[in-house]
Amino acid sequence: MRTTILGTGGIAGLHATAIGALGDHGISAQVTHAVDIDADRAAAFAAEHGVPRHGTSLDDVLGETDVLHVCTPPGAHLDATLTALAAGVHVIVEKPAVLSLAELDRIAEAEKSAAPARTGAGTARFTQVVQHRFGAGALRLRRLLDDGALGRPLVATCDTLWFRPPAYFDVPWRGRWDTEGGGPTMGHGIHQFDLLLAVLGDWTEVSAMAGRLAREVDTEDVSMAMVRFASGAMASVTNSLLSPRETSDLRFDTEKATVELSHVYGYSDENWTFTPGAGQDDVARHWAPEPEALPSGHTAQFIPTYRALAAGEAPPVTVADARGTLELAAAIYRSAFTGRPVQAGQIGPGDPFYTSMRGTGPGWEPVKDLPAAAGEVAR
């Protein structure tokens, strides 16, 4: 498969490396084009990663592309995705996929009418990077819950406690509703609570708070939420960019055990802790670490994704999966800014939070100069 990487900033290097590793797993794929609005940056990226062609126009290379990896700022994801699907090119988008539920619903409709895939199997497909779903520990935990080996899930915590200094937000598109979509809820914690949803399933209700406590941004710099799931389980979710000791922690308390994950930006089996409940020592046999398994990361997600695309099948993370996570982000903002709980399915056309995570407004005034419009980060 011929792959184009659109946007050659920091995250693009992880994509190039992961694509390069697919050959070790029997998948034929190569990054053939690198595209960026900054010609020099595209050229430097191509030289570093051995990419044959580079330039500043996506339109010029779509005809020679089977899979497009969108690694631009979030404000540019939608247009690139719609263009690629219409051209029969599969799309793999970095998180967050888009800035709103309305935009994601546009992608869902575009995927339904997408052109035949250039790979020759099926039509063009869309997927989002949520690499934490694909670590061995997460897959094992989901399997054990499905099998009933751990009993019912009851209580969970999901904490993304990261630190971003003021200088981090000097990049014009960061900390803005119109280009980043939100603060740590959208751009950082979304990976952890996506994994929370992958393990616990559908959520039904959320109550939340958000604040701009220390950074000169338009968005929040911290949010906290309480989430109820269809299973009856309850979870707390914290998303922070103000925490000097960075951790990404999830804890799942079931009827028979506590399962914990502690890492920062990625994990292996060594980052999990399994504690049987009182009188439940026998359940420990179900938790069998796999030392040879891939850690969570782009490679772990791209292997099954590329196999599915080559076969003309739906990728393991569908647009519906991405929507469930994005809807939770929107619900956190809606609850935080209106002071009321939000039910799953409540945010739809006509609701201010359907078209923007900012919705009716956070209650604080903008503090940043906004020199660039959202469209200027596109291509």
Rank of each mutant, 00 (worst) to 15 (best):
V70F: 00
T119S: 14
T32I: 04
R118H: 14
P96V: 05
L154M: 09
A39V: 01
L104G: 10
S113K: 14
R142I: 02
V155W: 15
A46S: 04
E48V: 11
A110V: 00
V31P: 02
G137H: 06
G75I: 03
H33Y: 07
R118I: 00
D38K: 04
V67H: 07
A18V: 02
G26D: 03
A124M: 04
F163P: 05
T160K: 14
H54S: 09
T160S: 15
A115T: 00
T119E: 15
R41T: 07
L139H: 14
R125V: 00
L22E: 08
R140T: 01
R41F: 13
H69P: 07
C71F: 03
A76H: 13
A115G: 03
G55T: 01
G151P: 01
A42C: 10
G55K: 09
A117L: 06
H33G: 06
F126S: 11
G26M: 10
R125M: 05
A136C: 12
W162Y: 13
V89R: 02
R164E: 15
V129S: 15
P96C: 09
F126R: 10
G151S: 03
T65V: 01
A80H: 05
L85K: 02
Q30V: 04
A156R: 13
F163C: 05
D105Q: 06
A44I: 13
G55A: 07
T119Q: 15
H54M: 05
A108R: 08
A16E: 09
V61P: 04
V93Y: 03
F45S: 13
A76M: 14
D105S: 03
E103K: 12
L141Y: 13
L62E: 02
V91Y: 12
D60H: 06
E111Y: 15
L154F: 05
A117C: 11
I107L: 15
S100E: 06
